[in-house]
Amino acid sequence: MEVVLEAADLVKEFGSLKVLDGASISLRKGEVKMLVGPNGSGKTTLLKCLNLLLRPDSGSIYLEGVEVTAPGVDAKLVRQRVALVFQESYLFSHMTAFENVLFGPYKVKKLARSEAEKLAVNALEEVGLDRGSWTLYPAQLSGGQRQRVAIARALAMEPSVILYDEPTSSLDPVGAEEVVATIVELARNGVTSLVVTHDVGLLAALDAEVYLMSKGRVVVRGRLEELPALAEKAGDPEAARFARALSLRLEKVRKAVVACRWTSC
C-alpha cells in the first residue's frame, strides 16, 4: 500500500526547549495508527508540524510522495490535505454546525456553493449528526456533537489523512462514546488516521498499531501490550512505565467488557 504521510527526523525547538528531537512516523493509505506518550513528550507539536501549522526546524515530511518541507511549497495547500481535529472542537462559534462544515470547501477550497454543500451534507451524514442539529450553533450542541461537527469539518475538505489530537479527552463519557463510534466508523471506511489519545476506550475500539513517544522522539511502535517490554529494551524506563500504566488500564477495560458479557450486565 502506498505511503500517504511520512515524517523523518523532525526537530522543533521553542527557544531552548527541544520539543521534537528526531521524531519519525509513517502512515499508509487507509491505515489507522495511534500515538501515545507522557504529557510534554511532543505529541501535539508533532501533529501541528505534520499539518505545517508549525514549521519543523529540520527533518522532512512527505505527503503522498512529495516533500512538503522543501522550500517553495505552499503550506496552505498542505494544510488543506492534512486535516487536524483538536482536543477542544474549536468550532467557529458564530456559525451553525452546517456553516462550520461548509466553510472549508466553500471559503478555503473556493468550490461552487452547490458542490461545497454536497460535501458538507456528506460529511455531516458520515459523522451521524442528526439533521435537526445542523442549523444549531455550537453553544446549542452537546460536547460529543460539537466534536463530531469538528470531525465533519475536517472530512469536508476531503483530506488525505486526518490527525486527531486527543479527540475525546474533553468530553463526558456519553460524548466520548459518540466520538469513538464516529472515529471507528471512519477508520472502517478507510479514512487514513493518526490518533493521539490516552483514552483506553478509543485505544481498545481502534485496536491499531501504537507509536510510543517520549522526549520528542518516537521510541518504539507495536501493539500496546508489547510496548512496555519494547521501551525497556530501547533503554527508556520512563516511557516503559508510561506504557505499562496505559496497557494495564486497557487490560482492565477489556476484562470489564468480558465480565459484562458473562454476567450480561
Partner: peptide
C-alpha cells in the same frame, strides 16, 4: 483555538 482551526484548514 478558533483562529488556529481556521489556519489548519488551509
Amino acid at each position: 483555538g478558533q483562529l488556529e482551526a481556521a489556519l489548519s484548514l488551509g
